[in-house]
Design a protein around this nucleic acid. Structure first.
Lengths: 118, 118
DNA sequence: TCAAGTATGGAATAATTCTTCGGTATATGA
DNA sequence: TCATATACCGAAGAATTATTCCATACTTGA
């Protein structure tokens, strides 16, 4: 593989351990998309997160699988089909995702005033 | 200033808004250090987070101030003295920090086995 | 036949963040 | 006098992450 995570999981500090697993640009969004438990195919995920470069989604999906937070099922069909699904371990992140989501919603206006375009 | 945040605060998605404010390497740790409400001097903070390059702490402190999450008091003394303190807005992040802290503690062993040194 | 969709990944480049080193200025204590 | 401490910041380069583009290989539908 050409692109593996360079910063290893950070074991020194619980906060940074968590951040090293979900801190990169789209991982929290991926987990949020999978939170219902319903599996999602990569093409569908790309549609739901159109701002993300699809290459990055692929890479971050792989890292999430490697970390055990999501799982992948490949169906040996043609055209190829695969699905990603959140794992029980990944589900334990939902309280964090919820807290971040709520905070972002609650404070959207403030930062929209501060940094938003007129 | 030579080093300003290049990725602007992300207003498109509540999750990424939150991440853009606390997602960089040491910000969540800084907020955690300040959570008691007690002010901390930069020299003290550097001692408490010895793994962080002090230049990065300085920069992230400034960004946190700019975002209104912490505040800075400068005492016009010699030698210079300043203090950082969490703001009420910053305190609203504590549930997120707590959730991340708890998750990291709960799953430390798992990732220690997976990625830790023998 | 040809375009589009499917999943995936290499490679190069861009962008951003982090680290390291040095410099400012002043005071204190050895 | 000299090292240390204080707070801060510039600059260069290293390290990491993100983006873009192209390639594979097969199917279906126009």
């Amino acid at each position: 593989m050409a692109y593996t995570k360079k910063i290893p999981v950070d074991l020194n500090c619980p906060l940074r351990l968590t951040m090293s697993l979900i801190g990169s640009k789209w991982k929290s969004c991926i987990i949020d998309e999978l939170r219902s438990g319903e599996p999602i195919r990569p093409s569908e995920l790309h549609k739901r997160l159109p701002e993300a470069a699809s290459r990055v989604l692929d890479i971050q999906l792989k890292e999430l699988v490697d970390d055990g937070l999501i799982e992948k099922t490949i169906y040996p069909e043609l055209p190829p089909r695969s699905e990603y699904r959140i794992t029980p371990l990944g589900m334990t992140l939902i309280p964090i995702i919820d807290a971040m989501l709520k905070w972002g919603e609650d404070h959207y206006d403030l930062f929209e005033k501060k940094y938003g375009a007129m």
